[in-house]
C-alpha cells in the first residue's frame, strides 16, 4: 500500500481522536450526550483558516490573516470554547435528553449559518487553506490532548465530573457545583473539537459546511460509546479502529458501509460496555482492575462462608 494513503488514514484517525477525547470527557465522564460537536469542529476549522489563510490578493478569493499555524490552532480552539460557554449558559440546565436535542440543534444551526453566510464561501466552501497539518503536528497534539485529559480526569475536578455522571443529586449534596462542572466539561470538549476542526481543515486544504453535518457529530459519539464510556484508552482505540475500518472494508465496494455498520453492531453485542468498558490501559488502570477483581472474589468467598456457617447453625 501507498505510504501517503496510510499516512492519510492515520492523520484522519488522529484528528478524529482529538474531537473524540473531548467528547469522552463530556459523554464518558460527565454523562452528557452531544450530537452537535461537529458544530464546534466547524467553528474551529473556519476560525483556524481565517488565521492562517494568506490575505486575499485576487478579487473573489477569501483572504485571512496569514498567521503561523499555531495561532490558527489556538484561535480555533478558543473560538469553539467561547461559543460553547454561551451554548452552555442556555442549555446546561436542561435534563438528559433535552440537552442532547439542544446540541443537535446547535450543530445543525452552525452548519446552516455557514452554508448561507457568503463571507466564507457559503455552501461552495473555502478552498486554499494551507496544508499545515502533518503526521507530526497531529501526533504531538494527540499526545498533549491525552495527557491533559488523563491528568484532569484523575484530579478532584475529574472526580467531580464523574460524580455528576454517577448520581447528580448526591454530587450536589457532596458540595459539587454541578452546573459549573458540566460547563467545564462542555468547554473542554468544545476546545478539543475546535482544535480537531483546525487540524482537519489544514489537512483537507478545503473546508465546506457539509463536512460538519450531524453525521460527523454522530460518528464522534459512536466512537466514544464504542470505545467504552469513561475510558480514555477506549476512546483512543475506538478512534483508530473506527476511522481505519471503512478503509479496510474498501474491498466490499458499495457494500462497505453496510459491513461497517454490521461490524460495529457485532462488537457492541459482544462487548456491551464498549471496547474498554470504563477500564484504562495504563499501569494505574491495570492495578485498579486487579484490585477490584480481588475485592470481588473476597466478597464472594465471604458470602459463601456465611452461607455455609448459616446452614450449619
Amino acid at each position: 500500500m501507498d505510504m501517503t494513503y496510510i499516512q492519510g488514514i492515520l492523520m484522519l484517525a488522529g484528528i478524529n481522536l482529538i474531537a473524540v477525547l473531548g467528547l469522552c470527557l463530556l459523554t464518558g465522564f460527565t454523562g452528557l450526550f452531544s450530537f452537535g460537536h461537529a458544530g464546534f469542529m466547524a467553528i474551529g476549522a473556519y476560525i483556524g483558516a481565517l488565521m492562517t489563510v494568506p490575505p486575499s490578493t485576487m478579487p473573489g478569493s477569501i483572504g485571512g490573516l496569514g498567521l503561523p499555524f499555531i495561532f490558527g490552532i489556538l484561535a480555533g480552539g478558543a473560538a469553539a470554547g467561547i461559543v460553547s460557554w454561551f451554548i452552555g449558559r442556555i442549555t446546561l440546565n436542561l435534563k438528559g435528553d433535552y440537552f442532547c436535542i439542544a446540541t443537535l440543534g446547535f450543530g445543525e444551526a452552525t452548519r446552516l449559518i455557514l452554508n448561507n453566510v457568503q463571507t466564507f464561501g457559503g455552501a461552495r466552501g473555502w478552498p486554499g487553506v494551507p496544508q499545515y497539518s502533518t503526521v507530526l503536528t497531529v501526533f504531538v497534539v494527540d499526545v498533549i490532548a491525552v495527557l491533559f485529559l488523563a491528568n484532569l480526569v484523575k484530579s478532584r475536578h475529574g472526580r467531580n465530573m464523574i460524580a455528576v455522571r454517577e448520581e447528580e443529586l448526591a454530587a450536589q449534596i457532596a458540595g459539587v457545583d454541578v452546573f459549573r462542572y458540566k460547563m467545564i466539561a462542555l468547554i473542554v470538549s468544545a476546545v478539543y473539537a475546535g482544535v480537531a476542526g483546525v487540524l482537519f481543515g489544514h489537512y483537507m486544504t478545503f473546508i465546506q459546511p457539509k463536512m460538519f453535518s450531524m453525521t460527523k457529530s454522530t460518528e464522534l459519539t459512536i466512537i466514544v460509546i464504542f470505545g467504552g464510556l469513561g475510558s480514555i484508552s477506549g476512546s483512543v482505540l475506538g478512534a483508530l479502529v473506527l476511522t481505519a475500518l471503512p478503509e479496510l472494508l474498501r474491498a466490499f465496494d458499495i457494500w462497505r458501509l453496510v459491513f461497517y455498520g454490521a461490524a460495529v453492531i457485532v462488537i457492541m453485542i459482544s462487548r456491551p460496555k464498549g471496547l474498554m468498558g470504563g477500564m484504562e490501559l495504563s499501569p494505574a488502570g491495570i492495578r485498579k482492575i486487579r484490585a477490584e477483581r480481588r475485592a470481588r472474589l473476597a466478597l464472594k468467598e465471604e458470602a459463601a462462608r456465611e452461607a455455609a456457617s448459616g446452614g450449619r447453625s
Binding site: 472526580r159 460524580a163 457532596a174 458540595g175 485498579k288 475485592a295
Partner: peptide
C-alpha cells in the same frame, strides 16, 4: 444514592474534594 460504579475508596475520595484547593 452512592456513586454506584466507583470503588468504595473513590466514593469517599470524591467527597473529600473540598479539602483540596488546587485549580484545573
Amino acid at each position: 444514592r452512592l456513586f454506584k460504579n466507583l470503588s468504595v475508596f473513590d466514593n469517599v475520595l470524591t467527597a473529600c474534594h473540598m479539602s483540596a484547593k488546587y485549580t484545573i
